[in-house]
């Protein structure tokens, strides 16, 4: 069982978490087209390699965070809270 380093709680068993899918960006709901919106809903990068994804620490701090995980080795190289992303974007 892999360990996921929760940015709040530290490394924990993956069974404490829920995988919440690839990180994605929500289109503007009032300007979007069906193609764009459904790409957001359904299309995945699904790489065999590093991917950026969302996890939820279900039986821990109940925080969502972003993880960079390698989908072949399952190694996790970085996790961060979504707020950190916002700060870095602003």
């Amino acid at each position: 069982m892999i360990l996921l380093p929760c940015p709040h709680c530290g490394p924990r068993n993956a069974s404490e978490f829920r995988y919440a899918g690839e990180a994605s960006t929500r289109p503007d709901p009032n300007a979007t087209t069906p193609e764009e919106w459904r790409a957001y809903l359904y299309i995945k990068n699904n790489p065999a390699g590093w991917t950026t994804e969302k996890w939820f620490h279900r039986t821990g701090c109940r925080r969502y965070f972003t993880a960079e995980r390698h989908t072949v080795t399952n190694e996790v190289r970085e996790t961060r809270l979504p707020a950190a992303r916002l700060e870095s974007n602003s």
Partner: peptide
């Protein structure tokens, strides 16, 4: 609960 937390934490923090 997880649904709400997702929107709150990652979309409307």
């Amino acid at each position: 609960l997880e649904w709400i937390e997702d929107w709150l934490q990652t979309y409307q923090p």
